[in-house]
């Protein structure tokens, strides 16, 4: 696992590490869905997402927010992500399985992805991000 949870009293704060920004964003998405659903298995469903933002922090928030939206309205639990970032735009393919109440119980609903304390930094040879999810 390349994400870990950090202490936070009310919400869920995670640190994600990856060798490049594409993987960093994919891992951030994986962290978010693991908070929401605990069990996220590979599945046949694919959704394409495109986002353009003002800067990298906004891009990460807009990307995760878009996944929250697609997941909720299409009732899909995503588990893997291929992300390609170009400047402050990205396209991504998210894969997952249909939401199944019997299987996906016990997680926490993520209400939003916060700018508070959001960081995206270089971490040696790779990148690191800290993200606060409102649950």
């Amino acid at each position: 696992m390349s994400f870990e949870e950090l202490p936070h009293q009310a919400d869920v704060r995670v640190r994600v590490r990856a060798e490049d920004c594409n993987v960093l964003f994919a891992e951030a998405a994986r962290a978010m869905f693991s908070i929401m659903y605990v069990t996220c298995d590979e599945g046949e469903i694919e959704r394409r997402v495109s986002v353009t933002s003002d800067d990298m922090q906004s891009l990460l928030i807009d990307f995760l927010s878009e996944l929250l939206f697609v997941s909720e309205v299409d009732r899909v639990v995503f588990s893997s992500f291929d992300v390609v970032i170009t400047g402050t735009s990205l396209t991504a393919t998210a894969r997952g399985e249909p939401f199944n109440p019997a299987k996906h119980l016990g997680g926490m609903e993520v209400k939003g992805v916060s700018y508070s304390g959001l960081t995206i930094t270089r971490d040696g040879e790779g990148f690191c991000s800290e993200i606060l999810f409102d649950v």
Partner: peptide, 9 residues
């Protein structure tokens, strides 16, 4: 009061 985002809770 506890830590939130933006305003405190």
């Amino acid at each position: 009061i506890h830590s939130g985002y933006g305003f405190p809770i």
